[in-house]
């Protein structure tokens, strides 16, 4: 990280530059999202036919935001700046909040979202990082589900479990295979856009307790796809 090397003087530290541009873009995007919400709020009643377009706008803006969060996160992961900030979280409140952050997206797509979680359940994790993971799955879910998403939180053998299931077509077989075969992580160099899942995997694995490590899994049932996050 040192720039004291005289041969390096004058050249720009690209990774630093990347990190700070991402930071800037993220802030602008934040303003964009807020304004967009206000616009949708005002005009969707007058022009309901625009609903679909708004949905795309909102969904894609959220995606960009998430992608940038990953980019920043992965940069930190690589430069060892990503430390997790463990704190005790009220799981039910936390999940409801994640739903609330994408409420507009669900509303315009007419998706019914329910949270099933004991009000007294608490978990220990990095609130911001896990929020990124859940948000990514929710935004994806909004795109691929038919009309409902169910989020569950529970504890099993001292491990916090969070599952997000939809009633869409399910995850593509190729993705399921990749996640179960790769063992350590997803190979996202293969070209497909699995960045979000790769990031989720890395974030989950950063959560450690009593020799256990967090992980994610994907399953399909006749009802639809299901994403599960386990945190020790």
């Amino acid at each position: 990280m040192s720039t004291s090397d005289p041969n390096n003087a004058g050249t720009i530290d690209f990774s630093m530059l990347l990190a700070s541009s991402v930071h800037d873009i993220k802030n602008s995007l934040g303003m964009l999202l807020t304004s967009l919400d206000e616009v949708i709020d005002i005009s969707v009643e007058d022009r309901p036919e625009q609903r679909k377009n708004y949905s795309i706008l909102r969904g894609e803006a959220s995606r960009i935001n998430n992608a940038l969060i990953y980019l920043l996160g992965l940069y930190r992961l690589q430069s060892d700046q990503l430390n997790i900030n463990l704190s005790e979280i009220y799981v039910a409140d936390f999940l409801e909040e994640q739903v609330a952050s994408q409420q507009l997206l669900f509303d315009i797509n007419a998706i019914d979202v329910t949270v099933e979680c004991d009000d007294n359940l608490t978990g220990f994790f990095d609130e911001n990082l896990i929020a990124g993971v859940i948000n990514n799955i929710l935004v994806n879910g909004a795109k691929y589900t038919r009309d409902s998403i169910v989020i569950r939180g529970w504890e099993q053998n001292q491990t916090l479990q969070i599952s997000i299931s939809d009633n869409g077509e399910g995850y593509p077989q190729e993705l399921l295979d990749k996640l179960s075969n790769s063992g350590r992580g997803i190979d996202f160099t293969s070209g497909s856009t699995n960045l979000g899942l790769f990031f989720s995997q890395e974030i989950a694995a950063l959560h450690r307790c009593r020799g256990e490590q967090g992980c994610i899994s994907l399953t399909n049932s006749e009802l639809g796809g299901c994403f599960t996050l386990s945190l020790p």
Binding site: H23, N27, G30, N83, E97, S101, Q103
Partner: peptide
């Protein structure tokens, strides 16, 4: 605007009750 980890803070008892990261919606 950033995650909590980017802010150094002094004594524990001077921590706020909560951090809210931008951007946030009214619902959040």
């Amino acid at each position: 605007a950033e995650t909590t980890k980017d802010m150094v803070f002094g004594a524990l008892e001077y921590q706020p009750d909560d951090y809210l990261t931008k951007p946030f919606t009214q619902a959040v």
